[in-house]
Computed example of a mutant assay.
Amino acid sequence: MRGPVVIATVLGASGLVALLGPGLHSADAAELCNGRKARTLHFRTGEVRVYRDKGYVCAVAVADRAGTPQAMSVTVQARGSAAVADKGTFKYHAGPVKVHAGHRCVWVRGKIGNKSVSSGWILC
């Protein structure tokens, strides 16, 4: 009798993952960076979430249409330092990208598909 119980449990769990899977990925994107959310930069195809934690700034670009592979990028640059980026074709998000900013301003850019956002110098 153990076989049918195991099969039912596995099928039930896989069904639950199938139902919750897409939602979990977009929720997980918000938790890829430590710290408190400092800004959210909205644009037509998604948003860039910017976090601060102990002198570090972290950013993630999250797609509105999660699950569809598309070109995405997120870039963070602390003033006076080189930009750090994550670029590629992703289903859910680009990043996280983390830089040490200390007390310096940062410039954050995000792109999903053919739409983008650029913050200018922020968090000064």
Rank of each mutant, 00 (worst) to 15 (best):
L32F: 08
E31Y: 15
V6W: 13
P69N: 09
R109S: 10
L16D: 05
R79Y: 13
R36E: 15
Q70P: 04
F43S: 06
G80F: 03
A30G: 13
A63M: 06
D53S: 14
S81C: 04
I7E: 14
K115F: 09
V48D: 00
A101L: 03
D86Y: 04
N114R: 13
R109F: 09
G102Q: 06
P69F: 07
V84I: 08
M72F: 05
G102H: 03
L41M: 11
G21R: 13
Y51E: 02
R39M: 10
F43P: 01
V97A: 01
Y92L: 04
A13W: 12
A71F: 07
V97R: 01
R109K: 14
L41Q: 08
G80Q: 06
R39D: 07
V6D: 12
R109A: 08
A29F: 01
M72Q: 04
L20Q: 09
R49W: 10
L11A: 12
V17E: 05
G21V: 11
T75W: 01
A27Y: 15
A82W: 06
S14M: 15
A27M: 14
D53V: 11
G88A: 03
A83E: 06
H42R: 15
R109W: 11
P96W: 00
C105N: 08
Y51D: 02
A29K: 01
K98A: 13
A18L: 14
R65E: 09
I112T: 00
G12P: 13
A85L: 05
A83C: 07
T40N: 07
A59T: 02
K98R: 15
A101Y: 02
G67T: 10
G95S: 01
M72E: 00
A101R: 01
A8Q: 10
H100Y: 14
V60A: 03
